[in-house]
Design a protein around this nucleic acid. Structure first.
Lengths: 198, 198
DNA sequence: GTCTATACCCAGATAGAC
DNA sequence: GTCTATCTGGGTATAGAC
């Protein structure tokens, strides 16, 4: 049944397409990449790609979910201290400075997806909500330890850091002399009583 | 010479096209909007549009410049105090909460335009540079008056506020319960010794 | 001077052969 | 599971009607 050498393991081709799509979306953006480009790099024709992913947007969503897995490795979600959660935000910003394509993809799509009818709208709405919850949780824990500066509200502080991360990405994409990690670290140190680093 | 009733005042049609284009770029982004869509809403065909604007890119640039005029009214550039410059950032954020289309346009395009070959790339690079200069100037003036909290660096603070403004827009577009004005005001008050408001 | 008609090529998507 | 062929629609450019 599955002994056919040509076909390989099911999902094998799917993986190759995903890898090619992620690279090319990252290099040239979603609109700048054609299905024929992706197909070419995967060694098929564009209807071949559409057999595995019904539409180009479905392929995009698959790439986004995979991106979340990759970046998710930077964000320890459980069993970590509140300070570690905040430090991981700075860490991600620093790592991102070496992953331009991924940053471009995310920045472009999160903006595009603000339209209610965009295929990735729900994806991003949920993503921001869960990110805000997670970061707000960290700030709340710090507040309970009296580790926040006076006037810092956990829920608002979460919105603010996440906003700053996103905005820094756009400025950095336009001018890579912008130091995202430092900007974020300085901001976070203004929220807490004892500096995060060291 | 100019007595032709059909033609109307020169620039009349141009205005209609611009208005339609601004709305549709805001809703669907640059790549998501076709000239035929814009033409349809303006009551002409797409080559009709191309008579007034040689290319789709030229139309985009015209729209961007007009947006700058609208928003520019919120930003007093000269003859104002440093504190007023910062307050105007908060004011713009509050006004923007009533101009969803404009915010969508700007958020979507600034992200798209991070690609080096995007027609609006240069426009946004310049825009951010000049905005940073202006805000950094305000922070520098405050620093000289000893009005900044210890550790606040003017140039970095400018990058940070602008980043936060942009990031807040994306979160607000996805969930309009986000209070952009308040988030920004609280952040700015953390940078200065005496609160900005009142 | 202002627009319509038309034609070009490239992209996403579908139908159906193998 | 993948291809060939084809359809539709987009951006661009030109010819020519009013």
């Amino acid at each position: 049944m599955s002994g056919d050498a040509k076909a390989g393991r099911p999902g094998r081709t799917r993986e190759m397409i995903l890898a090619a799509a992620m690279e090319m979306f990252a290099e040239s953006g979603f609109h700048g990449t054609s299905l024929r480009d992706i197909a070419g790099r995967s060694g098929l024709t564009h209807p071949g790609v559409l057999y595995h992913f019904p539409t180009k947007e479905a392929l995009l969503m698959a790439v986004l979910e995979r991106r979340d897995e990759v970046t998710g490795e930077d964000y320890p979600t459980e069993g970590t201290t509140a300070r570690e959660v905040l430090r991981s935000l700075v860490g991600t910003a620093r790592l991102n400075a070496g992953r331009r394509g991924l940053v471009e993809l995310f920045a472009t799509l999160s903006a595009e997806a603000t339209s209610a009818d965009h295929p990735a709208h729900e994806f991003f709405t949920q993503r921001y909500e869960s990110l805000r919850d997670q970061v707000a949780g960290a700030f709340t824990a710090l507040a309970e330890d009296g580790a926040l500066r006076p006037g810092v509200e956990p829920a608002l502080a979460a919105i603010q850091v996440i906003a700053m991360m996103d905005g820094l990405q756009v400025q950095w994409l336009l001018d890579d002399r912008i130091d995202m990690g430092r900007a974020l670290a300085v901001h976070l140190d203004q929220q807490v009583v004892t500096p995060l680093e060291a």
